[in-house]
Simulated assay, not measured.
Amino acid sequence: MLTTTPRLYTRRPSPTTAEFTVTTLPPPTIPLRILRVLLLALRVALVLLTALALHARWLSSPYAQPSLPSTCPTGDGWFSMEAVWYALDTLHKSSLGQLVGGLVENVPLVVLLPAAAALCYLLALRVHTTESLLVMRGLGVQTSSSPATYLASATSRFIPTEKIRDIFVNEAFRGFEVRYYLIVVVEGEENVVVVFPRLLPRRSIVETVWRGARACLYESRGGDTTEEKG
């Protein structure tokens, strides 16, 4: 329910500009929005529990430094490390904190630290993937791809028009199936640029983007439209 097969959204803000976005994010519905909010709350809760467990284990370690003064931060102090420590200290003294502390008290750090890092990485993973191709006649094309986690930034690349030798659909074997993908041949580069490399949408979407990209780059098209293709 949180993801779907790659879908194509086409946006043409001007006759010389077109944006093709392929995403696994389903169309927004009320149940989906509620589910995403619940998932976000679960992520935050698990991150807080992980931080509380590490804090409790650190306090039980012989290498722990004396605790910072338990004073409530004020003003800009809420955005400092002292505020984080104060919040963890307060949670540690609660019944939940005592329970978590008792559970991890005898867990070796060589086990707890990798497990906490792995859990935080899993919680930071994005549920859906979004990739796009922005075509601007006379300027070039820009490819972009959403990161795998919320901790990274999107990757993008701009290719000026004078460097584009051709845009075409290629095919390759992936396992026991033939996959079609869109590529941009760049002058002076040995390797081609694959559009939508992570999603590799089905042939109909690839051909639609190919026709639209070439039309926007080399032909005259009018009208501001927004299209969706499932």
Rank of each mutant, 00 (worst) to 15 (best):
L2R: 11
T3Y: 11
T4H: 05
T5G: 06
P6Y: 05
R7V: 06
R7L: 05
Y9Q: 14
T10I: 12
R11C: 02
P13H: 05
P15F: 15
P15W: 13
P15A: 15
T16I: 02
T21D: 12
T21P: 09
T21C: 12
V22F: 08
T23H: 08
T24Q: 05
T24K: 03
L25N: 07
L25V: 10
P31A: 03
P31C: 01
P31Q: 04
L32S: 02
L35T: 07
A41G: 05
L42Q: 04
R43D: 13
L46S: 04
T50A: 12
W58I: 06
S61L: 07
A64W: 00
A64G: 00
P66Q: 09
S67H: 11
P69E: 15
P69V: 14
S70D: 14
C72K: 06
P73K: 02
T74K: 11
D76C: 07
W78P: 02
S80R: 13
A83Y: 06
A83M: 08
W85E: 15
W85C: 12
W85N: 08
A87I: 12
L88N: 03
T90P: 02
L91T: 07
H92R: 15
S95A: 14
L96H: 10
V104T: 06
V104G: 08
L109A: 15
V110P: 01
L112F: 07
L113D: 11
L113G: 05
P114W: 13
A115F: 14
A116W: 09
A116I: 13
A118R: 10
L122Y: 10
L123K: 09
V127G: 11
T129W: 09
T130M: 14
E131P: 05
E131A: 02
S132I: 11
S132L: 01
L134C: 05
R137W: 09
V141W: 02
S146W: 07
P147S: 06
P147I: 00
A152K: 12
S153H: 12
A154K: 08
S156N: 12
R157Q: 13
F158W: 08
P160E: 04
T161C: 05
T161S: 14
K163I: 03
I164H: 02
I164D: 01
I167E: 02
F168E: 10
F168Q: 07
A172G: 09
A172F: 09
R179E: 07
R179V: 14
L182M: 04
I183T: 14
V184C: 06
V184T: 05
E190W: 03
E190A: 09
N191L: 01
V194D: 04
V195N: 01
P197T: 07
L199Y: 05
I205A: 01
E207W: 06
V209I: 02
G212W: 00
G212E: 00
A215C: 02
S220A: 11
S220I: 05
G222I: 06
G223P: 15
T225I: 09
T226F: 09
K229P: 00
G230C: 03
